[in-house]
Design a protein around this nucleic acid. Structure first.
Length: 696
DNA sequence: CTTAGGG
DNA sequence: CCCTAAG
């Protein structure tokens, strides 16, 4: 209650639908600006839908674990520690999802856990009259994960929703429930499912959010998704990427790992790769004040700008609800931009921060390109890392490493509460700790007969991915963007040491894949002739890896037992600018559906491409790039007209400088460059841009 | 959505 | 390649 009030207050006028309240600079280009803003605002609702969709598509309940944790969290707001781990998916061998990642061992709802009474609050809850969870049913119910997932998701979304709704009263409805929606899926939610129990539970507060969620109608998809997902491996990978606000949590849920360790209170929430992170906002709303405060505090720095949070103590939550919607590339790009901006803002803020965050925030509005560039530059060094976890989780993960277990394989796990409080032993002896949040795998082309079963498809995908990975991984360690070549260099020598300011440490993992080993798996990039399009028969399905992100807790990827580690975060302030100790694993970033903030893979123009480009320009002149593009590359999506324009720009530049200054003379031959110059000169003289259509 | 340019 | 202001 208190929180809500604060939230509302912080958000200002509080009536009517909440809009991004972030102050806006005077529009530079009035019309355009406003149009854009409107667009942005529109994303709010879409976001919800998208998130739901995404989540629902997350197969195998991988999203469950965390979610459970989340819902549980609210549920158990007593501050007991709750560690949630992703459900063990062994039973689902076909799942392509490799995000087993993670760190947290204990499935809160796991019957075992309950039985063991690991978390006091579990027992408390149970004692409080909540019908005991039917451990058996839970265990047997493969859907439990889903169930929880939904719960968690709901919670998380509800958070978002909450922001949009001014009515704080919704909370009360809580008890009523949501279970309803969740339970809609009988198969999924055995009557004894967690959610349904919420109601009776005195602490149901946290779950109260769910109803709201439901109102938005997001929940249903969630449940339905359970069924639907299975038929659509492809949908699995959907990454929820909302960078901002409540959604951030969700976003991470699909992708990475996040750990939160609330210091004083033994609350540790670890979201497994697919789980929903218990991000600040949620925590804030659902947990009890003390708890939320802590969390908030911890996460505070990071998102002070981007993520409006409920700040119990200061009620400085910012109104800016910035919904993120995962849509087409464009949208994605938009988000990426936002993300970067947000990060940049934070960074800049912190850099210039003399203690006044408010002022910094004020600055936020006027984002200059320079700053953007700065961010971009930094972005380069951490690529994926940022993409996946830049936001609050960045810091949370990094700064709160303590209790959570890293990809240790989950051998430990049972009691979150315990592990949550203990400092990792590894931290003692000057070990450097790293957290690998996720990584991508290259595109995988999969061919299956039309009559293949979904199950077989799953298997194939699994095999494909497995294959790809089993081929081996080439791991590189990057420090500040540079690959550390010498394997014999000690971490210390390399500057990666305990207490050091770890700037941009990254890991590059490349599949040394035996890509050909599996006939059904083709690496498109290698097999595709440059500049041509692949026309795929209907029966040929090109799948993006369902789950582009992997959690490294998987033994295969984890970085060594003892040496294994999480980074001890020291330079928290810098955390925003550099992913301290965070591992960016970037095998093949390229995939049609790029992740947020992720660049396209650099794909230098081949000579044939350049030739066709030159030919096209010779013919059409430069300036009408759209036409040029079509002329030279047809519908090839690989190259955009902007690419061509850029390429041309480069060609002209290259051609205009003395050969000595050129590096790598291979690509454009001198002959070609001459043509470039000629065409350039020709068309320049002819003012091609204006109206000339003459052929040269 | 395209172009044009700066980064 | 990315980003964005301007058409």
């Amino acid at each position: 209650m208190v929180f809500r009030k604060k939230l509302d207050e912080g958000s200002g006028s509080g009536s009517g639908t909440r809009q991004p309240r972030k102050p806006r600079a005077a529009p530079l280009a009035p019309v355009k600006r406003s149009a854009r803003l409107k667009k942005k605002q529109m994303y709010a609702l879409n976001l919800l839908a998208t998130v739901a969709e995404s989540l629902s598509s997350d197969e195998d309940g991988s999203s469950s674990g965390t979610d459970v944790g989340e819902s549980e969290e609210g549920y158990n707001s007593k501050g007991t520690s709750v560690k949630v781990e992703q459900l063990d998916e062994d039973s689902k061998g076909t799942s392509v999802k490799m995000e087993q990642l993670v760190e947290v061992p204990l499935m809160l709802l796991d019957s075992t856990a309950l039985e063991n009474g690991c978390s006091p609050l579990d027992s408390a809850v149970l004692e409080n009259g909540c019908p005991p969870l039917d451990s058996t049913s839970l265990e047997n119910d493969c859907c439990k994960g889903y169930a929880m997932g939904c719960a968690g998701i709901c919670a998380s979304l509800s958070q978002t929703n909450l922001r949009m709704r001014e009515g704080a009263s919704t909370q009360n409805v809580a008890g009523t429930v949501s279970s309803e929606s969740l339970i809609k899926e009988p198969g999924v939610f055995a009557e004894g499912s967690l959610v349904s129990r919420t109601k009776p539970c005195p602490l149901g507060h946290g779950l109260g959010t769910i109803p709201e969620y439901e109102t938005v109608g997001v929940c249903p998809p969630c449940s339905t998704g359970l069924a639907a997902v299975k038929q659509e491996p492809q949908s699995i990978p959907v990454m929820i990427t909302g960078q901002g606000d409540g959604i951030a949590a969700t976003r991470h849920s699909a992708v990475d790992t996040m750990e939160m360790d609330v210091k004083p209170l033994p609350v540790v929430i670890a979201a497994s790769s697919s789980g929903v992170h218990l991000d600040g906002p949620d925590m804030g709303l659902k947990s009890d004040p003390s708890c939320s405060y802590k969390v908030q505090h911890a996460a505070d720095r990071d998102d002070d700008e981007k993520f409006p949070r409920v700040h119990p103590s200061t009620s400085r939550s910012k109104g800016g609800y910035l919904p993120y919607y995962l849509g087409d590339c464009r949208t994605r790009r938009f988000f990426a931009t936002r993300m970067r901006k947000a990060a940049r803002n934070k960074i800049c803020g912190e850099m210039s921060n003399k203690g006044s965050k408010l002022s910094i925030r004020g600055k936020k509005i006027s984002t200059t390109r320079r700053r953007a560039q700065t961010q971009r530059t930094m972005h380069k060094t951490k690529k994926v890392a940022e993409c996946y976890s830049a936001q609050p989780s960045d810091e949370e993960t990094l700064t709160e490493t303590s209790g959570t277990s890293v990809p240790m394989g989950g051998q430990d796990a049972p009691c979150a509460s315990e592990s949550g409080q203990k400092k990792p032993c590894a931290a003692e002896g000057y070990n450097v700790k790293f957290i690998i949040k996720s990584f991508n795998i290259p595109e995988v082309l999969i061919e299956v007969p039309e009559d293949a079963t979904v199950g077989s498809l799953k298997r194939i995908v699994t095999d494909a991915v497995t294959n790809k990975i089993e081929g081996g991984l080439r791991v590189r360690v990057l420090l500040q963007g540079k690959i550390i070549q010498d394997d014999n260099t000690t971490l210390q020598q390399a500057g990666i040491c305990h207490g050091a300011k770890l700037d941009s440490i990254g890991f590059s993992l490349e599949c040394v894949a035996k890509q050909d080993s599996d006939p059904s798996v083709i690496a498109p990039e290698e097999t595709r002739p440059v500049g041509t399009c692949i026309v795929q028969p209907l029966s040929k399905v090109k799948c993006e890896e369902p789950s582009p992100s992997f959690a490294l807790s998987d033994p295969v990827y984890s970085f060594g037992g003892a040496a294994q580690v999480k980074s001890e975060i020291q330079g928290i302030d810098v955390a925003g600018t550099s992913n301290v100790g965070e591992l960016a694993i970037v095998p093949h970033p390229r995939s049609k559906q790029r992740d947020f903030g992720q660049r396209r893979k650099r794909r230098p123009f081949s000579i044939p491409e350049v030739v066709s480009l030159v030919e096209a320009v010779e013919k059409l002149g430069f300036g009408r790039w759209k036409n040029v593009k079509y002329h030279a590359f047809g519908d090839n999506q690989e190259r955009t007209y902007v690419d061509l324009k850029d390429k041309w720009k480069n060609l002209v530049h290259t051609a205009s400088i003395p050969p000595q200054l050129r590096r790598g003379q291979a690509i454009p031959t001198q002959d070609l460059l001459d043509r470039v110059l000629a065409a350039q000169a020709y068309w320049s003289a002819r003012q091609p841009k204006l109206e000339d259509h003459h052929q040269p």
